[in-house]
Structure formats: structure tokens, C-alpha cells
Nucleic acid binder design. Structure first.
Lengths: 223, 223, 223, 223
DNA sequence: CATGAATGAGCTTTCATTCAT
DNA sequence: CATGAATGAAAGCTCATTCAT
């Protein structure tokens, strides 16, 4: 906030209206709301907080959104559709033959790692969004929870699909696909949350690598 | 609530005081608060909601708690200390030799299963508590989040310890212990949440069994 | 209040918003608060009382003042600065030579009278303000008491100054200036309070005259 | 408070009931109330404050007083009747002839001084009582204000009487007795208040001396 | 005589939201 | 397009006071 204030030093009572096209304004509000929600949580964020960041009057927000919740819903819908699009357009799952000399197992794990990277990149693209999904929006509202549920579902289903293909390909053993997919997502979320909570940058590569190994071969020593 | 009201149909405005010892009342309030929070979430629950359930005046609650937050904190502290106690007193980790005829691997997985059961039983004993920890209390407040963080830490550390022992015992391979422990917890939570959200009873046995297999040997087909 | 309501008879629940500029509204609230405080005392006055008088919603008041106390403080600060200004700009103390034929003593008393009139006019301009300062605001709050103390100090210091000048001019004898100034203010306040308490109009002229005589020559018979 | 707590170090949960005769208990409560009211003011003092000081449960107070206000009223009635008694029994006003060699004027002033001492001693006996009368009880309540008014009246009337006698005796000139009496009281109160507010001990002798001189001969230089 | 426990009544305060410009 | 001003509705909270023991 101090940064913002420095950026726009207002002489005592400067109230400069700014004008933007409807679409631009809407977008700007969403950005500010994302920031605010992710920093302080949905409940702790007031309409005023958002409007201050956007440098608009509180009433202005209501020309674009019916509701405080509506802002959050719009935000989540944006994320949702981005994820859906990404899932639909993602690379076909293709597992090439392992190059000679490299054991199949290692090759598979390398493949898993790549998939995990894809997943993490998709869902946890930027920190604010991650925070919003994993923390800020929780418990906001029934409708919101439902949306989060749908987002979860899309992501999990996408993993399920990959798992099924991999089973068909004989790379992955027979298993309870929904269970495993969900477990993966939960595990990754928890690991990601640690970084978030400790305000460390996400090291997607490292996480993916460790997760691939863990989920690829398990924790038991080879007999 | 409707049930309770039917159970005690009172003509219009009967207000009979009930008396309890301080400790009993405090406990009762905590129980009602747990119910309320877990059903509707922390924010959506008002002091009035809790007091209605407890059939007490709102002021009464304030004789036992300074704050709405204080109620939640008390609740979580109760859970926390219960978990800490349980962790400290839990069975020593002892892995007997596998009985003849049974492969070592299977024996280990069976062992893991038992550990998962212990974990799930401990943390997700009753549904209301689970809901509270995983959903209702999230984003309530800085202090609360910190408490939840500590709870998380205790649980994860306990798993880390078991992992380390198992590695020493040669049962589990060398791995990034904190990562794996956290991943486990996240995965289990997510799976548990599904049951919670769909309002199904938790089948701890089944979850533990699947998790043990998954995390024991991974998903890849044996080469 | 009844007058106002009769003046604007509205069928049951007419709630028309009225709009004012921020400054005007603020001022209006202060006026209503002054009325209310002075009539019923600070503690007995609720935010609701003030808002009813101002015909505004309770929340509106909070857009202009952070607090009930803040309203009182604003009121007192207004009075304070008015008094300070008045004290600074007041007539130079000039005592002309006594006209021939008129004894010096009488002339001095006449002068004192004029000063008392000035003082009383300044501080007890309107009844509501007087009530506020002398009764309503007492014991409201530490901050408020401090403000009242400052107000007192300004007034007393102003009298002290005049006394010192008069001593230099040889009109007033050597005396304990702070004591006398304070005694004057106390005496006048007490006398003014009687009028206030009995809800009689203040007769400033008469009070000033009597005070001038009393404090000019004392009560003892001339030897 | 810290002093009290040290005086009665209670081992964790010692709740020792103390028993007293009704009269003793009543008296004790009044003492504690006086302390509390005078320190923090009537409104800022809660029933709990008083009971804590008296080391009794809150409900106990209600066996002796119907009301919070009732406590204050009892307190003031005590003071009132003490003052009335004192006024009635006070020394007859006797002004001896001035000893030879001492001018009459000086003798009169010395007499006035003595009267002021009597007055100050009577009314401002102990600090707590003074505080209560001059500060703490103000604005508490209509009934209370009335009582304070009566107290005021008694005191002022007593002074009026003395003034009248002195006028008859030819010591004091003809003047508006009620005005002067009230002015005296006001002046003295204000001067006493300074000491109170600055938490300095009252120097009754000095105040009386200065007041006697001031009100005896006035401020003007002798012609 | 004493009090722990319970509470009604009422107040301040906060926000999301609306209205009129 | 933008917003200052206004507000309802509801929450949290406090305190003097009362009941049952």
C-alpha cells in the first residue's frame, strides 16, 4: 500500500476521477480483488479494500458486480475456465519408448515428473491465485465452495484420465483411480501450501521430481 | 435444532434458566460451538447460534469466553492437546519379523496400513472435529491459523519420526522425509474431505488400506 | 423532538434520505450532539439519540466520527479554538484615566465589570455550550477531561494576564495571581450554574456587576 | 489493587467466604465504593470493581443496596447528614473585639480565614470525598444531582447565615448575600479542584488565608 | 449471610449495499 | 462512467441485575 501511495502522491484532497472502458475497469477490479483476497482472505477483505487498491469509489464496484461474492465468483470462474481450457488443450499423453540403455522404470518416473510439472504449472501459476484457491476462498460461501469443488473435480478428472491411459499402456498397475488421483492432488496441495505459508517461492521442478519418485515407486525398499 | 425444539415444545415464551457448574457449562458451550462451526463455518456462525443450541443467553457465553474467537481457540487447543497426548503415548513402532511364508513386502504394507489407521483415527475421530479442522476454521483469524499450523506440525512431525525409524530399520528407502510426510498428510486429508463433503461416513479401514498400498509400492508396474 | 415530528408528520414508516455535503452534515451532527449532550448529559445520550435528532441513520454518524467520544471531542475542540481565538483577538486592556469628578475606585470597578462581561459572554455564549462545559462533559473520559482542563487553563491564563497588567498599572494590588484568577473563574462558574440548573436565562450584566463589586473591594466594611 | 492482592495471596482457587454483620458489611461496601467512585468516576466504576475491592461476590452487594445508584446515594446521604450535623453544631459565630494595637481590618480578615478553614475542613475532609462530590458523582443521575444540589444548598446557606450575622455586626458591608456566598463556594471549589486534579495534597491553611484576603478587601489598590 | 451462575436489555459498531447526482 | 453520501441489518459485547442454592 505504501508503494501505491508513493506512486500516486495526492496533494491533500486530490480526487481525480479516472475513466476506463467497462471491460478494462472490470478487469482492474478483478485484479485488485485477487490481490486483496489472497493477501487477507475473503472475509477479512472489505469492499473498501478492493476499491482503494483500484482507486475507485465503493459504489463503482457495484456497477460491475452485484455483490462482494460476485467478485469472488467471477474470479474463480476465470480461473476455472482457464483450467478447463488448459486441460482440454493439453498435450496428448504420449509416452515414447524408453531410449535404449535407460531402464523403463526411470523413464516412467521421468514422464511422471513431466506430468506433475504440467499440473503444478497449470494450477499454481501465480502465487496470488494459488493462495486464493487453497486458502482465501475457503469457507466463503456455499456457492463459492461449490465452484471450488468443480475446479477440484476438473483437475482430478484430468489426472484420472491420464492414469487410466497409463494403466492401459501397462505402465501403471491396476489401482483405484479416483482414490489415487485425489491423493495426488491432496499431497501436492499440501506441499505447495507450505511454500505459500512460509512465503517462499514455489520450486515446481523440485516438487514434481520428488512427487514423481514417491508416487512412482513408493517408499518401501526394493526387496 | 428443529429436533431440539420439537423435543421441548414451550408455549411462546417460556424461559427457564438452567444451572450448571462452570466447568460443565463451559464444556457444553464448546460442544455446541463445535457443532455450529462445523456445520456452518466459523464466520457464518454467530454467537447467537451457539447460545441457542446451548439454550443459554448470549451473555452467558461471555462469562466463559472473552470472544467468539476465544471459543474457537479453546476448541482447537483442546484438539491440539489431545493430539499431542496421543502422539506422545502412541504405541512404539515395532515391526515384527514377517511370519514365514508371508513376503516381507506384504508385511510392510500391512504395517503401513495399521499406521495409517492409527493416524486417521487420531486426527479424524469424529466428523465434526474433522470438519472444523479441515474446513470451518480456515481463514478465521491469524491466531487461529497459527494454531492450525501447529497442529499440522505436530502431526507431520510424528509421521516424520516413524519414517525415520523405518528407514533405519531398512524397511523404507532413503527419501526426503519432510516432503513425504507432508505429502501423506495432504493426500489423506483430501481423501477424507471427499467423504466429509459428500456427507458420507468415513471408511477409515479402506482409506488406510489403499493409502498403504499406494505409498508403499507406488503406481508403476513392477518391471 | 415532538415539535420536529409534528412539523414533519409522516405516515408510519416514511424514510426519506436527505442529502447534505459532508461538511454540512458534520456540522449538523455536531449541533444535534450539543443539544443532546447538554440536555441529557454525555452518558445518558446514546448515538441513537443524536441520530434521531439529526434524522439520519446511526451508521451515517460513523462516517463522520469514529466514536461517540469523538463527537464530544470535536465539539469541545470547536469551543476550545473559538475561545483561543477570542482570547488572542480580544481588546487590548486599556484603562483610561477616570473622568473628572468620578472617583478612581468606581472607575476601576466599572472597568472590571466590563471585563467580566467580556469573559462571561465569551465562555457562556449560549446555554447549551455552557451546560456542556460545566456539566454534561464532566467525567466523560480521560481525554475529554484533559481537553476541559486545557480549556480551563486558557481562560484562567487570560485572566491572569489581565491581572498582571492591572497590577503593573497600579490599579490592582500585589496578589497571588494564579490563585485569584482561578478563584474568579470558579466563582463565576458556580453562579452561572445556578441559572443553568434553575433553567433561568443568564443575566450576564447583573452577574458581572456584582462580581466586579465583590472582587473589587471585598466584603468588609470600609474602616 | 496490587496492594490488595499482595495482602491476600490466594492459593490458586481460594474462595474464602468472609462473614460480617450486616451493618459492618454495608459500611465496608460503602468505603470501597467511595474509593472506586472517587478514583474512576461513577460511570467508569462497575459493580464488579466495588465488589472486588470488598472481596465479595457481586450478588452480595444487592443484599444491601437495591441499585448501583443506591450505593452512590447512600454515600452522598452519609456525607450530607454529616455536613448538616456539622453545620448545626458549629461554633457560634463570635467575633471578639480586636485586641488593642491590631487594626480592626486585619482582625476581621483573620476571622474570615478561620471561617474558611472551618468550611474547607468540613467539606473537603478527605480527598476521596472531595473527589466524589466535585467530580465523580457529577452527571450520574437526576436523583444524584438533586442530592448534590441539596448538599450545595446546605453549605451555601450556612455561609449566607454567617454573612448576614456579620453584616448585622457591621463587619461586613451590605451586599447580595446569596450571590456572594455562592461565589465563595465556587471559588474555593475551583481552587481545591486544582489540587485534586494535580494530585497534590490540599493546603487548607494557605487557601483559606489567600481567600480571606481576597474576599476581605478585594483586589483593587487602596485609594 | 453469601454467592456462582445466568441473563435481558441495550449500546456501539461494522459492512455491504443503495440512492441521487 | 463514477461516486459521495446515506443506510439497514445484524453482529458483538457489556453491565447491572436476578435467581437458586
Amino acid at each position: 500500500m505504501s508503494v501505491l501511495e508513493e506512486a500516486a502522491p495526492r496533494s491533500s484532497k486530490t480526487k481525480k476521477r479516472t475513466y476506463k472502458s467497462a471491460e478494462a475497469r472490470r478487469q482492474q477490479i478483478l485484479e485488485c480483488a485477487l490481490e486483496a483476497f489472497s493477501e487477507r482472505g475473503y472475509h477479512a477483505t472489505s469492499i473498501g479494500d478492493i476499491c482503494e487498491r483500484a482507486r475507485i469509489g465503493r459504489a463503482t464496484l457495484y456497477q460491475y458486480f452485484t455483490d462482494k461474492r460476485d467478485v469472488l465468483v467471477a474470479l474463480l470462474e476465470g480461473i476455472y475456465s482457464k483450467v478447463v481450457t488448459a486441460v482440454e488443450h493439453r498435450q496428448r499423453l504420449t509416452l515414447d519408448r524408453p531410449p535404449k540403455g535407460k531402464p523403463a522404470r526411470e523413464h516412467s518416473i521421468e514422464f511422471m515428473r513431466a506430468r506433475f510439472v504440467a499440473f503444478l504449472t497449470l494450477v499454481f501459476e501465480d502465487e496470488a491465485t494459488t493462495r486464493l484457491i487453497l486458502r482465501a476462498a475457503r469457507g466463503a460461501d456455499g456457492v463459492v465452495d461449490e465452484l471450488l469443488g468443480r475446479l477440484d473435480a476438473v483437475v482430478i478428472e484430468s489426472i484420472e484420465q491420464e492414469l487410466r491411459l497409463a494403466i492401459q499402456a501397462g505402465i501403471v498397475r491396476e489401482l483405484d483411480v479416483p482414490f489415487v488421483a485425489r491423493f495426488f492432488v491432496g499431497g501436492l496441495e499440501k506441499v505447495v501450501l507450505r511454500a505459500i505459508d512460509e512465503e517462499r517461492p514455489l520450486d515446481i521442478q523440485q516438487i514434481a521430481e520428488q512427487a514423481a519418485l514417491l508416487e512412482g515407486i513408493g517408499i518401501l525398499t526394493a526387496t
